[in-house]
Design a protein around this nucleic acid. Structure first.
Lengths: 351, 351
DNA sequence: TTGAAAGCGTTACCAG
DNA sequence: CTGGTAACGCTTTCAA
């Protein structure tokens, strides 16, 4: 049986309550008593049972994180930052994945709620905000990340997705693309925001959206690469075929490039490709991938920061929104400047 | 205030105990009472407070996972599988990262122990098994993954690392490499096992180990790519320089390839490179990377399975070891078969 | 089949 | 400064 505060109290000859106070740094304990208790605590290497404390205080010292897929570096990074910062402050991080399935997301949320988490951080895959009714009802502070729900009053951290779409599309136009396709994401705020940025930019430059140039498929965050490859194959059948592709995220872009090269075409000479996310291995790819950087590290830190502030604020939950500004990162997959130089040196024309 | 069992009991007109029994499917409750209770439970969408249950039963329904870095796909995959399987069985997964720092690992373990976790899954970065004293003392079931400690009697799941080293080195020899270097991993069981496989294979084929051909650097699981690039740069200064490189893991191999191409050399013609891990994007790389597959998915599932079996077995902890057999996967980074064909088409000679 | 009593390890409130 | 009493929400044991 593990040591309890009762044991310490008995050993030292004070009451259990005094021990409790010492352990929580209450100042109404004499220095002498405090030292006595702390010595014994150190001797026994004692640490209070957080479960019991949780029951008594109504706080679990636990934060829940729900993301579509931990294999996606964007979410892994957030999990990393969050877990690190929380631990420093005595909180634990409970992680679950929804596998891009709203039904599973709902069940998972309910499961997490049973644990009386002190806060919940969710990258939701739901299309309606009804999933969050239970959370609001339970009074659990909520931080939405990546995907937002305009009709829901809560904390949100995300990238300016319309700007993502704009930057990517404008860049493709700048390098001379005339027929720009979009491999779109899911019907969540990032998916829709990026699509809108794409559409608005086309309109701004008076480029007509070609029929069939917007490809969609479900489950993009879980099987993005495969989706990208599949969708790109479809696009290649069109006539005229696109000369530029903006993919919802980097894995989809990678899949798209795969399909293009497989078809014997070149990237970026025949078709330029840009994604979003700026994943850490983008620069090591067959064709180094142009991307829209989402400041993933900063994103993770901001998430941790906001969550901690919710945890510490005694006042009722705030309602803060943080929008991160994305940035264009140009690599070979859209770099046509040294076109002739590159041709012979680039794997783009292999296979 | 959230609903409690007491509320249900009052509403239905039975005792709290009876409600508790119904909720746990005890069979000493009449069908009538059971239905009454369940109806009300459903009406209120009630779920028992796991914190309270945890205090009463001494179980937290929580499993802890401690890995060096979630950004590494190998560990992310394990986290994914584990979280998924555990959730199905009513358990939560608490995730922490050690950032390849033994000191942090120790503190984190102690922090996790305070929560009275029902089991702990650890990919340890420690060099001694002393970190686990507290775990054994607390009586928490332990599953070691990836890195093992021969002097520690506990459950272990890992890859046969000596075979990893053997497969990789033998493959390099097979394709004609004469001067094979190794970018080694940390002083953990996988790092040492792979190194041993490498050394034994060299010996078996009577190839002498060249001085300086074994490069080492700390922190490989956190900054693997950078390490690989840095170490490879050192190797390139040697004379004669290696014509084959076996890297501890894929990120290091990617870094190495980067350095080789930067130096104006070709992969695999001048230097062949092989890693380990068979990451999901290995095939999309600048030079598609040969690797030793570690069956990551199966690894994750086995981990989940073993952990669950520990959780469910009422008997004291077992002491099971599972060794996964690795497999060679050949891609362009070591493929010299179509040497002449490939030269012009391969990005290997770019930059 | 039902439920009363005791307890899990801690904290909050208030009296001494 | 110290400590008793009650409570957190649930389970366990055992008697009715």
């Amino acid at each position: 049986m593990p040591t309890t505060m009762k044991d310490i109290a008995r050993d030292v000859g004070v009451s259990l309550i005094t021990v409790s106070k010492v352990l929580r740094n209450h100042d109404d304990v004499s220095e002498k008593t405090r030292k006595l208790v702390l010595d014994r605590v150190k001797e026994l290497n004692f640490t209070p049972n957080l479960v019991a404390r949780g029951l008594a205080t109504g706080r679990s010292y636990l934060v829940g994180l729900l993301v579509p897929d931990l294999l996606h570096p964007f979410f892994a990074q957030i999990a990393n930052s969050l877990s690190e910062e929380l631990l420093k402050n005595g909180y634990g991080l409970l992680i679950s994945t929804s596998k891009e399935d709203p039904e599973l997301e709902k069940r998972t949320v309910d499961g997490l709620l049973r644990r009386r988490l002190d806060a919940l951080v969710i990258a939701s895959v739901s299309t309606t905000s009804s999933v969050f009714a239970n959370i609001q009802e339970a009074g659990t502070p909520l931080v939405l990340i990546d995907r937002c729900f305009p009709d829901l009053k809560t904390n949100y951290i995300g990238v300016d997705d319309e700007v993502v779409g704009t930057l990517a599309t404008e860049h493709l136009i700048t390098i001379g693309c005339k027929r720009i396709a979009h491999l779109r994401g899911p019907a969540t705020s990032p998916g829709i925001g990026r699509l809108n940025g794409y559409l608005k930019t086309l309109k701004k430059y008076k480029i007509e959206a070609m029929p069939g140039y917007i490809s969609a498929q479900m489950m993009v965050d879980v099987h993005s690469r495969e989706s990208g490859e599949y969708l790109m194959k479809q696009l290649l059948r069109l006539s005229p075929r696109p000369d530029g592709v903006f993919a919802y995220n980097d894995p989809m872009a990678i899949g798209a490039i795969h399909a293009i090269l497989d078809a014997g075409l070149r990237v970026p000479e025949d078709i330029a490709v840009i994604g979003s996310g700026n994943l850490h291995f983008d620069n090591e790819l067959r064709v180094p991938l142009s991307s829209i950087d989402q400041q993933t590290e900063q994103f993770g830190e901001l998430t941790a920061q906001l969550t901690l502030s919710l945890l510490q604020s005694k006042t009722s939950f705030r309602n803060k929104t943080v929008i991160i500004q994305p940035q264009l990162v140009i690599r070979a997959s859209t770099d046509r400047r040294h076109n002739t130089n590159r041709k012979g040196r680039n794997l783009a024309n292999a296979r």
